[in-house]
Design a binder for these strands. Structure first.
Lengths: 225, 225
DNA sequence: CTTCAACTACCAGAATTTTCATGTCTCTCT
DNA sequence: AGAGAGACATGAAAATTCTGGTAGTTGAAG
């Protein structure tokens, strides 16, 4: 399996290549869009990994070029968190998947494999919703009633868990292991404190309240009118 | 497979039971050492999970009772981080494995399965060493030249990684993914900062220096005389 | 032997997360 | 209904971790 990687930042590019090679792929690495496009058109790759932000022509333009030439290989985009803003809509048109930096290498590998297996179109669902609360997984952003809400990493992870299992009462032990990785201790109240912070941000000033405490059981996010 | 759980704190006990039942085990849960011992002697369990700290007779005494009665079932101990101090040596005598709270439930499950599979004796190696630097995985403590050093969670994780792969140059990308879970960003210097903090704690005031920077490659922990 | 550029180190302020002490609520038992 | 216990909420300090800027080092190129 041969993969084309277009990434201008050498450090990142080298690590990408190294990791993919270790995983058993053949990798062509180039540092700018023009070379990338050229290589994509002259060589036969099974997949392309494109950084969006590239000097000269950007990843998006490279994709256009590839598609215009009639090549239908799956394309995985890499985007920095903030470059993303007004570009997202564009992705609908042609990218097969994207990853927001920073990401774990294992994540990249998983997506690459999934794209190769399924021959493209692996896009994940990008939003989680409950009423007027919306969580944008791609941009890692949250809004309620259209109003943007800034969450920290832990808060986001907690809310994501609650939203993914909407309606289920999640015991503390589950929350602890999911959001805090390690945990099975009882003499701490990190969870309560985190829930409180989250409530202040997503429930305070809004109706109805979405996070409910179930005494003796845990917490649920559910729509109670 | 039937498991005996002896845990006095109801919350923890219930979660343990719940989790183990979900994993397909039959679970007897009791809240004190005496009941635990009684049940262990009258019923046939395949494994026992004992909290060390119990009202009345403690986990250790329960184990003794079980062994005296000639029962040879594997025993997994649960210990709080600080109760551990002067008890550890005792474990050599009869416990098959132990887990320090707080721990991830998945961790417990893994150990339970391993004990059941191998029919006991799954003890992990508990120390990592390099010269006069010693890292005690069980107690999560570090000493250099006998002098105790307090490390934070991240510092510990970083040092553990360096020690486990002693002599290998670890590229930043590897460190980032191992210690920081998510990561593949270049515009951050968390790693440098963490290395610096770690150096201050384990290398400053000692000789030789153990952590070495390999320019352009990463960091190694190695013994250079 | 200089100079430059790329790395790495260092520092301090900011943000996040945890801990701890205390307050409030809810259920149970009388 | 009232007392007590356990569970949860709250607030604020403490600890940890991250960010961004600046300084120092090193190796390569001239």
């Amino acid at each position: 399996m041969k993969i084309l990687v277009v990434e201008d930042e050498p450090k990142t590019g080298i690590y990408l290549k190294q990791g993919l090679v270790e995983a058993g792929f053949v990798v062509d690495l180039v540092e700018n869009g023009l070379d990338g496009l050229h290589l994509a058109l002259t060589e036969a790759h099974d997949l392309a990994v494109l950084d969006v932000m590239l000097p000269g022509i950007d990843g998006w333009q490279v994709l256009q070029g590839i598609r215009r030439a009639g090549k239908d290989i799956p394309v995985l985009f890499l985007t920095a968190r903030d470059q993303l803003e007004d570009r997202v809509k564009g992705f609908e048109l042609g990218a097969d998947d994207y990853l927001v930096k920073p990401f774990a290498f294992s994540e990249l590998l998983a997506r690459v494999r999934s794209l190769l297996r399924r021959g493209g179109k692996a896009k994940e669902s990008e939003f989680l919703r409950a009423l007027d609360l919306e969580l944008d997984l791609l941009r890692r952003r949250v809004t309620r009633s259209g109003k943007r809400i800034d969450l920290t990493a832990k808060e986001f992870a907690l809310l994501e868990l609650l939203l993914r299992r909407q309606g289920e009462v999640l015991p503390r032990s589950l929350i602890a292991s999911q959001v805090w990785d390690m945990n099975f201790d009882s003499d701490t109240n990190v969870i309560e404190v985190a829930i409180k912070r989250l409530r202040i941000k997503i429930d305070e000033g809004f109706e109805p309240k979405l996070i409910r405490t179930v005494r003796g059981m845990g917490y649920v996010l559910e729509i109670t009118d």
